[in-house]
Structures are given as C-alpha cells and as structure tokens.
Simulated scan of single mutants.
Amino acid sequence: MAIPLAATVVLACLTGCSSADRVPGEHPLPTVVPSAAPSASSSAAPSASSSAAPSAFSSAVPRHDAALPDDVPTVAAPVRITVDRVGIDQPVRPEGVDATGEMALPSDPAVAGWYRYGAGPASGTGSTVIAAHVDAVGYGIGPFAHLVDVPAGTPITLTDAAGTTTQYAVTTVSLLRKTGVPWPSIFDRDGPRRLVLVTCGGDFDTTTHHYLSNLVVTATPTN
C-alpha cells in the first residue's frame, strides 16, 4: 500500500452526514448500550483520497494532527458487511481522506467505506473502521440507518477480498454528540482487535443539513 511522503497529515473526525431535511426513523436513539467501548490511543494515518459530495464531515469539529507511521501493513480489504438481524448486506470499499483532510465516504449510503490506513479484519490489533452515510440527497436512507436497532450480541459478518469471513458480536451501541466522539480510540491501530461502525444520527440541523450526533457501534471478533 503506497503511503504519501509527508511529515504530518490531518486525522479527521466523522462529524456530520449531509442529508435531506428529514431524520430516518424519527425515533429516539440510545445513548449507550450496554457498556463502554475500549479506550486506546490513536495512531491511524490517512492519505489523499477523495469522495463525491455530500461530505460526511463538519469543519466545526476539532481535528488532530497525526504523524504518518513508518510502516502500514498490507491487509486484505473488507468487501462486504452483513448484519442479518436488521437486513444490512452491502458492499464495502477502501477509503482514505478527501482533499480537505477528512475521511472520505462513498456518496451512496448503500456503499460503506473502510478506513484503509487502519486495521483490517485479519489484523491482530486495532479497530477496523467502517462508516457510511445514514442517508443522502438523491439516494434516500441507507442500510446503516438500521444500526440503531441492533442489541448487544448481534452477529456481524465481514467478508474480505480474499474470501475470508470474520464474525463479530456487537458489544456497544452509542449515540454521541459529534463534539464528544472519542476519535483517537475509534481509529486506534494498536489496541484490542475490534470492529467499529460509524454513521450519523440524532437530531438533524435543517440549517446546516447535518446531523448533530454519530451512532457508533463496536463489536468484538468471535472467530
């Protein structure tokens, strides 16, 4: 995997999915279910990659400078995520960061993005981060809108480019204000092996066309 030659880059936060002027589901989301997510320090490193509008981010949220690692191991990319309980079965494609220094996402909510400078399903440590828009103008509501309905213990399956499947079980579902999301922990490359799914949720600001919160689902491998 090629790494751009640069001393520092901006590690961005998933901060605000653009959307139509409606909130999918229109029902309350949980604050935390059922236990705290693992905490770890961040060492993820993005690269230059772009994605079409709408943007998933807001410059109002602080960003963190992150030094590029000396070595980013090559791992098989996840290509599909399945959560049978809520009908999620969608492709996943690798993403880096866009021209503004923020994690890029596929513009279509039916396609999820994997943070390719972080861990993958076969990695021994760190977070495999997969994110998607909850909805988007011109596309409608995406599959990740259903993550609000997953309870602890829900099975999740990731299939990678090598055809290997990794099974996970949901441990936490948290709705967090965008200014309070622990991004260093979410993008951690050295802590416990886990899957982190991120989308938008909560109240919708019709002025900025951004959601005010992120829905963060963590899951631990079972195989």
Rank of each mutant, 00 (worst) to 15 (best):
G163T: 06
D188S: 15
S19P: 13
P151D: 01
P4T: 07
L215Q: 13
G87R: 07
G153Q: 02
D70S: 15
A104H: 06
G113H: 02
R80N: 02
S174I: 04
F57P: 14
V137P: 15
D98E: 05
P30H: 00
L68V: 04
T100S: 12
L68I: 02
K178H: 13
T179H: 14
G25C: 09
H209Y: 04
S39C: 07
D65K: 15
Y139H: 15
V10R: 12
A36P: 10
H210D: 09
Q167W: 00
F57L: 14
D65A: 13
R189P: 05
Q90A: 04
L29N: 10
I186P: 02
V9T: 09
Q90C: 04
N223L: 06
G140D: 05
P38L: 03
T128F: 02
V181A: 10
G202K: 11
V148M: 07
W183N: 07
A66T: 14
A44V: 00
D205E: 08
C200W: 03
F144C: 08
W114P: 07
A136G: 11
A152N: 01
G138V: 01
G16S: 09
T199L: 02
P78L: 04
V129I: 07
T165N: 08
Y115I: 01
P109N: 11
D21A: 05
